[in-house]
Computed example of a mutant assay.
Amino acid sequence: MHTKTPQPRTLGDHTWRDQAACRSTPHHQVDPELFFPEPDEVDRITAAKALCAQCPVRSTCLDAALENGDRDGIRGGMTEEERELLHGKLEHRLNYARVNEVLAGRDIHLTKAERRAVVRAAYQADIPAEQLARMLKITGEHAGKLYRRTRREIRNRAVDQQKKANEAKKTPDNTPQALKNPTAKLPARDDLGTAA
């Protein structure tokens, strides 16, 4: 059975909470305090995680907690301590599905790495700076600056790759062939030609 990856929530969208397993209804009462146990309350932690394990929006809940900086309670099936490492790594998250969603016009939360990927993809697709500005909710001037930075990065990467390719053409120990074989005939001054 193939499960569909949930779409990232749009900014300000809280409708996903209506599908949460922890939402109380008249037929399914859930004590919200269950999700705020003390670190040594193992039974409460286990019960909360069991409810999270069957939740259809668990990954969205975790994303919302990380994106909003929520550090208290059990969110997305993880305790405060378990999420702590993820909070520190969030800005480096690079999910191309999220990048593609923004390029398609959806308004979602992006990490720094994902924003850079959107700029690069938009630049390579020749999307006008004004359209990039709307996608990222920045000024047209700032979008132009991001495109100039991206152009420089692409150019510098190409130069670095050319340097590496040239270095790879050298012998394994990076010594020019003429210096490795001292008996090899070096070109005479007359053989070098003249500078024009």
Rank of each mutant, 00 (worst) to 15 (best):
T3W: 08
Q7N: 10
L11N: 11
G12T: 04
G12D: 10
H14S: 13
R17W: 09
D18V: 07
D18A: 14
Q19F: 10
A21S: 05
R23S: 07
S24K: 01
T25M: 05
H27R: 11
H27G: 08
D31P: 09
D31H: 13
P32H: 10
P32A: 11
E33H: 14
F35M: 03
F35T: 02
P37S: 14
P37V: 07
P37Y: 12
E38F: 08
E41C: 09
T46A: 13
A50H: 04
L51V: 10
C52H: 04
A53M: 07
Q54K: 09
V57L: 06
V57E: 01
V57G: 02
T60D: 12
L62V: 03
D63V: 03
A64F: 10
N68H: 15
G69K: 03
D70W: 11
R71D: 10
G73P: 06
I74K: 05
R75K: 13
G77N: 02
T79I: 07
T79S: 09
E80G: 10
E81Q: 11
E81T: 13
E82M: 04
E82V: 01
E91T: 11
E91G: 08
H92L: 14
R93W: 13
L94P: 07
Y96N: 11
V99Q: 04
N100H: 03
E101D: 13
E101K: 03
V102Y: 01
L103N: 01
L103D: 01
A104D: 12
G105E: 03
G105L: 03
R106Q: 10
H109D: 15
L110H: 04
K112S: 15
A113Q: 05
A113C: 05
A113N: 03
A113T: 07
E114K: 12
R116E: 13
A117C: 10
V119L: 02
R120A: 08
R120Y: 04
R120M: 07
R120F: 05
Y123V: 00
D126K: 07
I127T: 06
P128D: 03
P128Y: 00
E130R: 00
Q131T: 12
Q131E: 12
L132D: 01
L132K: 02
L132H: 02
A133E: 00
M135D: 00
I138Q: 02
T139K: 08
E141H: 09
H142G: 09
A143F: 00
L146C: 03
R149K: 12
T150F: 03
R152Q: 12
E153S: 08
R155N: 15
A158T: 10
A158W: 11
V159C: 08
Q161K: 06
Q162S: 07
Q162E: 14
K163C: 10
N166A: 14
E167S: 07
E167V: 06
K169W: 01
K169D: 02
T171V: 11
P172S: 10
T175Q: 15
T175E: 15
Q177I: 14
L179P: 03
K180T: 06
N181P: 02
A184W: 08
K185G: 09
L186Y: 14
D190F: 12
L192W: 06
G193V: 08
